[in-house]
């Protein structure tokens, strides 16, 4: 991957982006157990496969989601939060 397609700005060189980690749901800290909270804080899905991740286009301050295969670094699609379709 050397080019990443920002949903707002289109294809841009990878150097313009920052990686923000996997998209994850936070459990309700008031309601969940200590174990569930520890799992959320520390544990990750590190297995090979396709993952939805946060990416940030630093030149234009756009956060968006990229679906990427972490084995061959191929981007399957990118979209803004709340919109699961590609532009």
């Amino acid at each position: 991957m050397k080019i990443l397609t920002c949903p707002i700005n289109g294809p841009r060189p990878i150097q313009e982006f920052h990686y923000g980690g996997a998209v994850r749901d936070m459990p309700d800290p008031a309601a969940c157990t200590d174990e569930e909270w520890a799992d959320y804080v520390f544990n990750r899905d590190g297995a090979p496969g396709v993952k939805a991740e946060w990416w940030y286009h630093s030149a234009s301050s756009v956060w968006f989601i990229a679906e990427r295969d972490v084995v061959n670094d191929e981007i399957l699609r990118t979209y803004l939060w709340g919109k699961s379709e590609s532009p």
């Binding site: 799992d39 520390f42 544990n43 990750r44 590190g46 297995a47 090979p48 972490v70």
Partner: peptide, 17 residues
């Protein structure tokens, strides 16, 4: 390669490669 092996035994860990 641990993240592939730990799946076989159903363990969760913080490991990211």
């Amino acid at each position: 390669w641990t993240t592939g092996i730990q799946e076989m035994v159903g363990l969760r860990s913080p490991l990211v490669v």
